[in-house]
Design a protein around this nucleic acid. Structure first.
Lengths: 202, 202
DNA sequence: GCAAGAAATGAACCACAATTCATTTTATAG
DNA sequence: CTATAAAATGAATTGTGGTTCATTTCTTGC
Protein backbone atom coordinates (compact mmCIF):
# COMPACT_ATOMS: atom_id res chain seq x y z
CA UNK A 1 0.00 0.00 0.00
CA UNK A 2 1.10 3.55 -0.71
CA UNK A 3 0.66 6.32 1.79
CA UNK A 4 0.03 9.91 0.73
CA UNK A 5 1.87 12.83 2.23
CA UNK A 6 -0.27 15.17 4.24
CA UNK A 7 -0.06 18.91 3.64
CA UNK A 8 1.76 19.31 6.91
CA UNK A 9 4.54 16.93 5.87
CA UNK A 10 4.77 18.51 2.43
CA UNK A 11 5.10 21.93 3.98
CA UNK A 12 7.77 20.68 6.35
CA UNK A 13 9.72 19.17 3.48
CA UNK A 14 9.48 22.32 1.43
CA UNK A 15 10.74 24.26 4.37
CA UNK A 16 13.63 21.86 4.91
CA UNK A 17 14.62 22.09 1.26
CA UNK A 18 14.72 25.87 1.59
CA UNK A 19 16.66 25.57 4.81
CA UNK A 20 19.28 23.46 3.05
CA UNK A 21 19.49 25.94 0.18
CA UNK A 22 19.86 28.80 2.64
CA UNK A 23 22.58 26.95 4.54
CA UNK A 24 24.35 26.21 1.27
CA UNK A 25 24.27 29.87 0.27
CA UNK A 26 25.70 30.86 3.61
CA UNK A 27 28.52 28.37 3.36
CA UNK A 28 29.27 29.13 -0.29
CA UNK A 29 29.47 32.83 0.40
CA UNK A 30 32.04 32.33 3.12
CA UNK A 31 35.72 33.01 2.45
CA UNK A 32 37.97 30.33 0.99
CA UNK A 33 35.17 28.09 -0.11
CA UNK A 34 35.55 26.66 -3.51
CA UNK A 35 35.60 23.57 -1.36
CA UNK A 36 32.90 23.14 1.19
CA UNK A 37 31.56 19.88 2.54
CA UNK A 38 28.07 18.45 2.60
CA UNK A 39 28.68 17.75 6.26
CA UNK A 40 29.06 21.47 6.95
CA UNK A 41 25.86 22.29 5.12
CA UNK A 42 23.93 19.48 6.81
CA UNK A 43 25.14 20.69 10.18
CA UNK A 44 24.15 24.28 9.43
CA UNK A 45 20.74 23.08 8.26
CA UNK A 46 20.34 20.94 11.38
CA UNK A 47 20.06 17.58 9.60
CA UNK A 48 22.12 14.41 9.27
CA UNK A 49 24.42 14.16 6.26
CA UNK A 50 22.37 11.30 4.85
CA UNK A 51 19.23 13.41 4.92
CA UNK A 52 20.80 15.82 2.47
CA UNK A 53 20.64 13.11 -0.19
CA UNK A 54 16.92 12.78 0.23
CA UNK A 55 16.59 16.37 -0.96
CA UNK A 56 19.38 16.69 -3.53
CA UNK A 57 20.85 14.00 -5.72
CA UNK A 58 24.42 15.26 -5.34
CA UNK A 59 26.62 18.13 -4.30
CA UNK A 60 26.72 19.24 -7.92
CA UNK A 61 22.95 19.35 -8.14
CA UNK A 62 22.84 21.51 -5.04
CA UNK A 63 25.30 24.00 -6.48
CA UNK A 64 23.43 24.15 -9.75
CA UNK A 65 20.23 24.83 -7.86
CA UNK A 66 21.70 27.63 -5.79
CA UNK A 67 23.41 29.31 -8.71
CA UNK A 68 20.44 29.00 -11.03
CA UNK A 69 18.19 30.51 -8.38
CA UNK A 70 20.45 33.49 -7.78
CA UNK A 71 21.10 34.12 -11.45
CA UNK A 72 17.42 34.04 -12.25
CA UNK A 73 16.82 36.56 -9.48
CA UNK A 74 19.50 38.89 -10.84
CA UNK A 75 18.26 38.64 -14.41
CA UNK A 76 14.73 39.45 -13.34
CA UNK A 77 15.92 42.59 -11.55
CA UNK A 78 17.88 43.72 -14.60
CA UNK A 79 15.04 43.05 -17.01
CA UNK A 80 12.57 44.88 -14.82
CA UNK A 81 14.77 47.94 -14.56
CA UNK A 82 15.52 47.99 -18.29
CA UNK A 83 11.85 47.90 -19.14
CA UNK A 84 11.48 51.49 -17.92
CA UNK A 85 13.65 52.85 -20.72
CA UNK A 86 13.61 52.77 -24.50
CA UNK A 87 16.88 54.53 -25.34
CA UNK A 88 19.67 51.93 -25.56
CA UNK A 89 22.18 54.06 -23.66
CA UNK A 90 19.64 54.41 -20.88
CA UNK A 91 19.00 50.68 -20.85
CA UNK A 92 22.70 49.96 -20.56
CA UNK A 93 23.07 52.45 -17.78
CA UNK A 94 20.05 51.02 -15.97
CA UNK A 95 21.57 47.53 -16.21
CA UNK A 96 24.79 48.76 -14.69
CA UNK A 97 23.06 50.60 -11.92
CA UNK A 98 20.88 47.71 -10.92
CA UNK A 99 23.89 45.38 -10.94
CA UNK A 100 25.90 47.61 -8.67
CA UNK A 101 23.01 48.22 -6.33
CA UNK A 102 22.04 44.57 -6.16
CA UNK A 103 25.54 43.29 -5.54
CA UNK A 104 26.23 45.89 -2.89
CA UNK A 105 23.00 45.04 -1.18
CA UNK A 106 23.05 41.25 -1.54
CA UNK A 107 26.55 40.33 -0.57
CA UNK A 108 25.76 36.64 -0.50
CA UNK A 109 24.51 36.69 -4.08
CA UNK A 110 27.51 38.71 -5.15
CA UNK A 111 30.00 36.39 -3.54
CA UNK A 112 28.42 33.29 -4.97
CA UNK A 113 27.91 34.59 -8.51
CA UNK A 114 31.14 36.55 -8.84
CA UNK A 115 33.57 34.53 -6.83
CA UNK A 116 32.45 31.06 -5.88
CA UNK A 117 30.74 30.21 -9.13
CA UNK A 118 33.48 31.17 -11.60
CA UNK A 119 35.90 29.41 -9.30
CA UNK A 120 34.18 26.04 -9.46
CA UNK A 121 32.59 26.41 -12.90
CA UNK A 122 35.90 25.60 -14.51
CA UNK A 123 36.36 22.39 -12.59
CA UNK A 124 32.88 21.04 -13.25
CA UNK A 125 33.32 22.14 -16.82
CA UNK A 126 30.25 23.37 -18.60
CA UNK A 127 27.92 21.40 -16.40
CA UNK A 128 26.32 24.70 -15.40
CA UNK A 129 25.09 27.67 -17.33
CA UNK A 130 27.86 30.08 -18.14
CA UNK A 131 26.55 33.19 -16.48
CA UNK A 132 29.19 35.54 -17.77
CA UNK A 133 28.74 34.43 -21.34
CA UNK A 134 25.04 35.00 -20.92
CA UNK A 135 25.48 38.52 -19.60
CA UNK A 136 28.01 39.30 -22.31
CA UNK A 137 25.48 38.26 -24.91
CA UNK A 138 22.96 40.74 -23.51
CA UNK A 139 25.42 43.61 -23.51
CA UNK A 140 26.53 42.71 -27.02
CA UNK A 141 22.96 43.05 -28.27
CA UNK A 142 22.84 46.61 -26.97
CA UNK A 143 26.19 47.50 -28.48
CA UNK A 144 25.18 46.01 -31.82
CA UNK A 145 22.08 48.15 -31.79
CA UNK A 146 24.11 51.28 -31.08
CA UNK A 147 26.59 50.33 -33.79
CA UNK A 148 23.82 49.81 -36.34
CA UNK A 149 22.42 53.23 -35.51
CA UNK A 150 25.86 54.78 -35.92
CA UNK A 151 25.80 56.20 -32.40
CA UNK A 152 29.21 54.73 -31.46
CA UNK A 153 32.47 54.22 -33.39
CA UNK A 154 33.27 50.93 -35.16
CA UNK A 155 34.38 48.18 -32.75
CA UNK A 156 34.22 44.44 -32.25
CA UNK A 157 30.99 44.33 -30.27
CA UNK A 158 31.81 40.98 -28.69
CA UNK A 159 35.14 42.23 -27.41
CA UNK A 160 33.54 45.40 -26.09
CA UNK A 161 30.75 43.48 -24.38
CA UNK A 162 33.29 41.10 -22.83
CA UNK A 163 35.40 44.00 -21.60
CA UNK A 164 32.26 45.66 -20.26
CA UNK A 165 31.32 42.65 -18.14
CA UNK A 166 34.96 42.26 -17.12
CA UNK A 167 35.02 45.70 -15.52
CA UNK A 168 32.09 44.71 -13.35
CA UNK A 169 33.47 41.40 -12.22
CA UNK A 170 36.79 42.93 -11.31
CA UNK A 171 35.49 46.05 -9.57
CA UNK A 172 32.68 44.35 -7.67
CA UNK A 173 35.08 41.62 -6.57
CA UNK A 174 37.53 44.17 -5.26
CA UNK A 175 34.74 45.77 -3.30
CA UNK A 176 33.66 42.40 -1.94
CA UNK A 177 37.21 41.80 -0.83
CA UNK A 178 36.89 44.86 1.31
CA UNK A 179 38.71 47.42 -0.71
CA UNK A 180 35.93 49.89 -0.27
CA UNK A 181 36.20 53.29 -1.97
CA UNK A 182 36.35 56.43 0.13
CA UNK A 183 33.79 58.25 -1.96
CA UNK A 184 31.07 55.79 -2.96
CA UNK A 185 29.28 58.27 -5.18
CA UNK A 186 32.42 58.93 -7.23
CA UNK A 187 33.32 55.24 -7.41
CA UNK A 188 29.85 54.32 -8.58
CA UNK A 189 29.83 57.07 -11.23
CA UNK A 190 33.34 56.16 -12.32
CA UNK A 191 32.44 52.58 -13.09
CA UNK A 192 29.38 53.53 -15.09
CA UNK A 193 31.05 56.33 -16.99
CA UNK A 194 34.10 54.21 -17.62
CA UNK A 195 32.02 51.87 -19.72
CA UNK A 196 29.88 54.58 -21.29
CA UNK A 197 32.92 56.48 -22.55
CA UNK A 198 34.53 53.16 -23.50
CA UNK A 199 31.87 52.12 -25.95
CA UNK A 200 32.03 55.62 -27.37
CA UNK A 201 29.08 57.56 -26.10
CA UNK A 202 29.62 61.20 -26.95
CA UNK B 1 81.96 12.25 6.60
CA UNK B 2 80.26 14.59 4.18
CA UNK B 3 80.47 14.10 0.44
CA UNK B 4 80.41 17.01 -1.97
CA UNK B 5 78.22 17.03 -5.04
CA UNK B 6 80.12 16.94 -8.31
CA UNK B 7 79.23 19.44 -11.01
CA UNK B 8 77.66 16.69 -13.00
CA UNK B 9 75.22 15.83 -10.22
CA UNK B 10 74.46 19.48 -9.54
CA UNK B 11 73.69 20.01 -13.20
CA UNK B 12 71.49 16.96 -13.26
CA UNK B 13 69.59 18.20 -10.22
CA UNK B 14 69.15 21.64 -11.69
CA UNK B 15 67.83 20.05 -14.83
CA UNK B 16 65.42 17.86 -12.88
CA UNK B 17 64.13 20.86 -10.94
CA UNK B 18 63.43 22.60 -14.23
CA UNK B 19 61.85 19.47 -15.60
CA UNK B 20 59.47 19.36 -12.65
CA UNK B 21 58.61 23.03 -13.08
CA UNK B 22 57.99 22.49 -16.78
CA UNK B 23 55.80 19.48 -16.10
CA UNK B 24 53.90 21.50 -13.50
CA UNK B 25 53.29 24.30 -15.96
CA UNK B 26 52.02 21.87 -18.53
CA UNK B 27 49.64 20.26 -16.08
CA UNK B 28 48.45 23.56 -14.61
CA UNK B 29 47.72 24.97 -18.03
CA UNK B 30 45.50 22.03 -18.90
CA UNK B 31 41.74 22.33 -18.74
CA UNK B 32 39.83 21.68 -15.54
CA UNK B 33 42.87 21.92 -13.34
CA UNK B 34 42.38 23.90 -10.23
CA UNK B 35 43.02 20.43 -8.87
CA UNK B 36 45.98 18.50 -10.18
CA UNK B 37 47.95 15.83 -8.34
CA UNK B 38 51.61 15.58 -7.52
CA UNK B 39 51.45 12.08 -8.94
CA UNK B 40 50.54 13.47 -12.36
CA UNK B 41 53.39 15.93 -12.28
CA UNK B 42 55.88 13.33 -11.07
CA UNK B 43 54.79 11.02 -13.83
CA UNK B 44 55.13 13.73 -16.45
CA UNK B 45 58.59 14.60 -15.11
CA UNK B 46 59.56 10.94 -15.08
CA UNK B 47 60.23 10.64 -11.36
CA UNK B 48 58.69 8.88 -8.37
CA UNK B 49 56.21 10.82 -6.30
CA UNK B 50 58.55 10.80 -3.34
CA UNK B 51 61.31 12.38 -5.38
CA UNK B 52 59.16 15.46 -5.88
CA UNK B 53 59.51 16.23 -2.19
CA UNK B 54 63.28 16.30 -2.48
CA UNK B 55 62.91 19.27 -4.81
CA UNK B 56 59.91 21.13 -3.39
CA UNK B 57 58.70 21.26 0.18
CA UNK B 58 55.03 21.04 -0.77
CA UNK B 59 52.49 21.37 -3.52
CA UNK B 60 51.89 24.92 -2.41
CA UNK B 61 55.57 25.79 -2.71
CA UNK B 62 55.58 24.42 -6.24
CA UNK B 63 52.63 26.55 -7.26
CA UNK B 64 54.16 29.64 -5.74
CA UNK B 65 57.37 28.98 -7.64
CA UNK B 66 55.64 28.54 -10.96
CA UNK B 67 53.44 31.58 -10.56
CA UNK B 68 56.20 33.81 -9.28
CA UNK B 69 58.40 32.81 -12.21
CA UNK B 70 55.73 33.57 -14.79
CA UNK B 71 54.69 36.82 -13.21
CA UNK B 72 58.25 38.07 -13.02
CA UNK B 73 58.65 37.23 -16.70
CA UNK B 74 55.52 39.16 -17.63
CA UNK B 75 56.45 42.19 -15.55
CA UNK B 76 59.89 42.33 -17.13
CA UNK B 77 58.36 42.36 -20.60
CA UNK B 78 55.97 45.16 -19.67
CA UNK B 79 58.66 47.28 -18.03
CA UNK B 80 60.98 46.84 -20.99
CA UNK B 81 58.32 47.92 -23.46
CA UNK B 82 57.22 50.90 -21.35
CA UNK B 83 60.78 52.16 -21.13
CA UNK B 84 60.62 53.15 -24.81
CA UNK B 85 58.03 55.85 -24.18
CA UNK B 86 57.71 58.92 -22.01
CA UNK B 87 54.14 60.03 -22.69
CA UNK B 88 51.83 58.34 -20.18
CA UNK B 89 49.17 57.50 -22.75
CA UNK B 90 51.86 55.82 -24.82
CA UNK B 91 53.12 53.90 -21.81
CA UNK B 92 49.64 52.66 -21.04
CA UNK B 93 49.10 51.65 -24.64
CA UNK B 94 52.46 49.88 -24.72
CA UNK B 95 51.56 47.95 -21.58
CA UNK B 96 48.32 46.81 -23.13
CA UNK B 97 49.95 45.80 -26.37
CA UNK B 98 52.67 43.78 -24.73
CA UNK B 99 50.10 42.03 -22.52
CA UNK B 100 47.96 41.03 -25.45
CA UNK B 101 50.91 39.91 -27.53
CA UNK B 102 52.48 37.95 -24.69
CA UNK B 103 49.33 36.18 -23.67
CA UNK B 104 48.45 35.28 -27.24
CA UNK B 105 51.91 33.93 -27.77
CA UNK B 106 52.46 32.17 -24.43
CA UNK B 107 49.25 30.28 -23.91
CA UNK B 108 50.65 28.38 -20.98
CA UNK B 109 51.56 31.56 -19.14
CA UNK B 110 48.19 33.05 -19.94
CA UNK B 111 46.27 30.02 -18.71
CA UNK B 112 48.20 29.81 -15.49
CA UNK B 113 48.18 33.52 -14.65
CA UNK B 114 44.65 34.32 -15.80
CA UNK B 115 42.77 31.16 -15.05
CA UNK B 116 44.54 28.70 -12.79
CA UNK B 117 46.04 31.23 -10.44
CA UNK B 118 42.97 33.31 -9.60
CA UNK B 119 41.08 30.05 -9.20
CA UNK B 120 43.35 28.68 -6.48
CA UNK B 121 44.53 31.96 -5.02
CA UNK B 122 41.29 32.29 -3.12
CA UNK B 123 41.55 28.89 -1.53
CA UNK B 124 45.15 29.29 -0.37
CA UNK B 125 44.18 32.75 0.73
CA UNK B 126 46.81 35.42 0.33
CA UNK B 127 49.63 32.94 0.59
CA UNK B 128 50.79 34.16 -2.81
CA UNK B 129 51.35 37.58 -4.25
CA UNK B 130 48.15 39.07 -5.55
CA UNK B 131 49.07 39.58 -9.15
CA UNK B 132 45.97 41.46 -10.13
CA UNK B 133 46.30 43.89 -7.27
CA UNK B 134 49.86 44.49 -8.31
CA UNK B 135 48.94 45.22 -11.90
CA UNK B 136 46.08 47.42 -10.81
CA UNK B 137 48.49 49.48 -8.74
CA UNK B 138 50.68 50.08 -11.78
CA UNK B 139 47.77 51.20 -13.92
CA UNK B 140 46.53 53.41 -11.12
CA UNK B 141 49.83 55.25 -11.04
CA UNK B 142 49.49 56.10 -14.71
CA UNK B 143 45.91 57.25 -14.30
CA UNK B 144 46.85 59.39 -11.31
CA UNK B 145 49.52 61.05 -13.38
CA UNK B 146 47.07 61.79 -16.17
CA UNK B 147 44.55 63.11 -13.65
CA UNK B 148 47.13 65.39 -12.06
CA UNK B 149 47.99 66.79 -15.46
CA UNK B 150 44.31 67.35 -16.19
CA UNK B 151 44.44 65.22 -19.32
CA UNK B 152 41.44 63.11 -18.33
CA UNK B 153 38.16 63.87 -16.55
CA UNK B 154 37.79 63.42 -12.78
CA UNK B 155 37.37 59.80 -11.73
CA UNK B 156 38.20 57.37 -8.94
CA UNK B 157 41.57 56.22 -10.24
CA UNK B 158 41.47 52.97 -8.28
CA UNK B 159 38.11 52.03 -9.72
CA UNK B 160 39.27 52.90 -13.23
CA UNK B 161 42.48 50.93 -12.85
CA UNK B 162 40.53 47.97 -11.52
CA UNK B 163 38.09 48.17 -14.42
CA UNK B 164 41.00 48.47 -16.80
CA UNK B 165 42.63 45.25 -15.59
CA UNK B 166 39.23 43.59 -15.52
CA UNK B 167 38.73 44.11 -19.25
CA UNK B 168 41.96 42.28 -19.91
CA UNK B 169 41.26 39.33 -17.70
CA UNK B 170 37.80 38.84 -19.15
CA UNK B 171 38.73 39.31 -22.80
CA UNK B 172 41.94 37.30 -22.73
CA UNK B 173 40.15 34.52 -20.88
CA UNK B 174 37.42 34.41 -23.50
CA UNK B 175 40.09 34.11 -26.17
CA UNK B 176 41.83 31.36 -24.24
CA UNK B 177 38.54 29.53 -24.04
CA UNK B 178 38.52 29.48 -27.80
CA UNK B 179 36.13 32.23 -28.60
CA UNK B 180 38.49 33.66 -31.16
CA UNK B 181 37.50 36.86 -32.97
CA UNK B 182 36.99 36.78 -36.73
CA UNK B 183 39.04 39.91 -37.28
CA UNK B 184 42.02 39.86 -34.94
CA UNK B 185 43.16 43.34 -35.88
CA UNK B 186 39.78 44.84 -35.01
CA UNK B 187 39.51 42.85 -31.81
CA UNK B 188 42.95 43.92 -30.68
CA UNK B 189 42.27 47.59 -31.49
CA UNK B 190 38.89 47.40 -29.81
CA UNK B 191 40.30 46.24 -26.49
CA UNK B 192 42.98 48.94 -26.45
CA UNK B 193 40.69 51.74 -27.57
CA UNK B 194 38.00 50.57 -25.17
CA UNK B 195 40.25 51.41 -22.26
CA UNK B 196 41.74 54.54 -23.80
CA UNK B 197 38.34 56.06 -24.40
CA UNK B 198 37.21 54.80 -21.00
CA UNK B 199 39.77 56.70 -19.00
CA UNK B 200 38.87 59.72 -21.08
CA UNK B 201 41.60 60.24 -23.67
CA UNK B 202 40.34 62.79 -26.14
C1' DG C 1 -3.57 1.84 18.72
C1' DC C 2 -1.34 -0.67 15.18
C1' DA C 3 0.90 -2.55 11.07
C1' DA C 4 3.20 -1.03 7.08
C1' DG C 5 5.27 2.70 4.52
C1' DA C 6 8.21 6.86 4.41
C1' DA C 7 11.75 9.80 6.24
C1' DA C 8 15.74 10.57 9.00
C1' DT C 9 19.97 9.06 10.91
C1' DG C 10 25.01 8.75 11.12
C1' DA C 11 28.45 5.27 11.04
C1' DA C 12 30.67 2.85 7.41
C1' DC C 13 32.38 2.67 2.76
C1' DC C 14 35.13 4.20 -0.90
C1' DA C 15 38.07 6.93 -3.67
C1' DC C 16 41.53 9.95 -3.91
C1' DA C 17 45.57 12.73 -3.01
C1' DA C 18 49.32 14.90 -0.04
C1' DT C 19 53.04 13.48 2.41
C1' DT C 20 56.28 10.17 4.75
C1' DC C 21 59.63 6.57 5.29
C1' DA C 22 61.91 2.05 5.15
C1' DT C 23 64.37 0.23 1.43
C1' DT C 24 67.03 0.25 -2.85
C1' DT C 25 70.03 2.51 -6.08
C1' DT C 26 73.62 5.63 -7.15
C1' DA C 27 77.59 8.68 -6.12
C1' DT C 28 81.77 9.89 -3.48
C1' DA C 29 86.51 9.52 -1.81
C1' DG C 30 90.28 7.12 -0.28
C1' DC D 1 87.10 -1.79 -4.95
C1' DT D 2 84.77 -0.60 -0.88
C1' DA D 3 82.51 1.61 2.85
C1' DT D 4 79.49 5.29 3.54
C1' DA D 5 76.75 9.35 2.16
C1' DA D 6 73.18 11.01 -0.74
C1' DA D 7 69.37 10.48 -3.85
C1' DA D 8 65.55 8.03 -5.60
C1' DT D 9 61.81 4.94 -5.00
C1' DG D 10 56.93 3.73 -4.36
C1' DA D 11 54.18 1.43 -1.02
C1' DA D 12 52.16 2.71 3.23
C1' DT D 13 50.14 6.37 6.03
C1' DT D 14 46.98 9.83 6.94
C1' DG D 15 43.31 12.81 6.22
C1' DT D 16 39.31 14.19 3.86
C1' DG D 17 34.87 14.27 1.90
C1' DG D 18 31.10 12.44 -1.16
C1' DT D 19 27.85 8.87 -1.03
C1' DT D 20 25.44 4.62 0.75
C1' DC D 21 22.74 1.73 3.72
C1' DA D 22 21.21 -0.91 7.74
C1' DT D 23 18.77 0.80 11.53
C1' DT D 24 15.72 3.91 14.06
C1' DT D 25 12.04 7.24 14.28
C1' DC D 26 8.03 9.17 12.53
C1' DT D 27 3.52 9.04 9.49
C1' DT D 28 -0.37 7.17 7.41
C1' DG D 29 -4.80 4.99 7.07
C1' DC D 30 -7.64 1.88 9.17
Amino acid sequence: MVYNKTKKVLAKQNLLRKKILAAAKEVMAEEKSGNFSIKTIAQKAGIATGTFYLYFTSKEALIENVVQELYTELLALIKEERSHYSDVFDKLQASMEVCIRTFLQKKQMAKILLKFFPEINYTVNNKFIDIEKDLIRFVKEDIDELLAAGFIPPQDSLVSATAFVGTFREVMLSWLNNEKPVDWELAYRTLIEYNMRAIGKK
